[in-house]
Simulated assay, not measured.
Amino acid sequence: MTAGETKPAESARSIAWARRRQAAGRVWREFATDRGGLIGLIVLAIIVLLAVLAPVLTNEADLNVTTTELPPRDPPSADAWLGTDRNGVSVLLLIWWGARVSLLIGFSAALLSVFIGTAVGILAAHFGGWPSTILMRLTDFFLVLPTLVLAIALAAVLPRGLGTIVLAIGVASWPTTARLVRAQTLTIEARPYIERSRALGAGHAHLIGKHVLPAVLPLVFANTTLVVANSIIAESTLSFLGVGDPSRPSWGGILQAAFSSGAATQGAWWYLLPPGIGIVIVVLCFTLCGRALETVLNPRLRGQG
């Protein structure tokens, strides 16, 4: 390849990246005009930052029930701002470290769910025929199954741990994404530039990788924020029902321990409210961000706004 052939290729690549940066900047400016989405993003950033810095700002050894010196089920005080649990461990510390587990499972399960759903949706819409029929019947099968029941069954059969919870939630929650991506892919496949690419001899990998996937990704990204919120709720539900990972604190696990120890009947509100409020705030923030992204990335919704 000569220098003259290399320069046009590099120039086209630089132009493509420049357009992507401009598009990203435009999306951010429009997203910033949505007050609810911006507030949700700021609160999420703070929560994620605190969760990441938990090993730096706190001592994990204080979660050990055998070394704690605080009285059990003690109301909020200067020593424990949110009181203590049934074992004398600070509830604030449990919430702090539980955020790491809940967010980790939420993000991981959402990525697994979105990956499976995106792959199934694109392949079903692109190839059509019998591959589409098989993939969509498989999607319908998982869609009619109760997501929570399927996740509980998988979590109960497989060895208990974070990986099992991620797998159970991800496998049980991908059909909605698959149907959404399939509908968007069918719209993209009908566009003229796809027909021109096919006429010029473009293969399946080129069409999917260069045209379909980049056009679908904005919708997938917006949907991911909503899937993360659903995954956090699913993880909290599984932990509350006793099929989570008992070796790590999570918000659902804290709620389960509080109810099983009679915190509700004994008036230990500081043991019940913080994990529930944490779940509500995080899910609400992800929902606000997802709705704001949908408004920005969907021209019809943006027009209505």
Rank of each mutant, 00 (worst) to 15 (best):
Thr2Met: 06
Lys7Gly: 04
Pro8Val: 14
Ser11Pro: 02
Ala12Lys: 10
Ala16Arg: 15
Ala16Met: 09
Ala18Lys: 14
Arg21Thr: 11
Val27Ala: 15
Arg29Gln: 15
Leu38Ile: 12
Gly40Phe: 05
Leu41Arg: 03
Ile42Glu: 06
Val43Tyr: 06
Leu44Cys: 06
Ala45Met: 12
Val48Arg: 00
Val52Met: 13
Val56Glu: 06
Leu57Lys: 09
Glu60Met: 09
Thr66Asp: 15
Thr66Ile: 13
Thr66Glu: 15
Pro71Leu: 09
Ile95Trp: 11
Trp97Ala: 02
Arg100Ile: 00
Leu103Trp: 00
Val114Asp: 08
Phe115Leu: 15
Gly121Phe: 02
Gly129Pro: 01
Met136Thr: 11
Leu138Thr: 13
Pro146Asn: 09
Val149Lys: 10
Ala153Trp: 07
Leu154Gln: 03
Ala155Trp: 01
Pro159Cys: 11
Leu167Asn: 05
Ala168Gly: 03
Ser173Gln: 11
Ser173Asn: 12
Trp174Lys: 07
Pro175Val: 10
Thr176Asn: 13
Thr176Lys: 11
Thr177Glu: 14
Ala178Pro: 03
Arg179Asp: 05
Leu180Trp: 06
Val181Thr: 03
Arg182Ala: 07
Ala183Lys: 05
Ala183Met: 07
Gln184Tyr: 03
Thr187Cys: 04
Arg196Phe: 15
Arg196Val: 15
Arg198Gly: 04
His204Asn: 12
His206Tyr: 15
His206Ser: 14
Leu207Tyr: 07
Lys210Gly: 14
Val212Gln: 04
Ala222Arg: 05
Thr225Trp: 11
Leu226Met: 09
Ile233Met: 12
Glu235Ala: 02
Ser236Trp: 00
Thr237Ile: 05
Leu238Gly: 01
Phe240Arg: 00
Leu241Cys: 05
Gly242Met: 04
Pro246Trp: 04
Leu255Glu: 00
Ser261Phe: 10
Gly267Asn: 06
Val283Met: 02
Leu284Ser: 11
Thr287Asp: 12
Cys289Pro: 02
Gly290Ser: 10
Glu294Met: 12
Arg300Lys: 15
Gly303Phe: 14
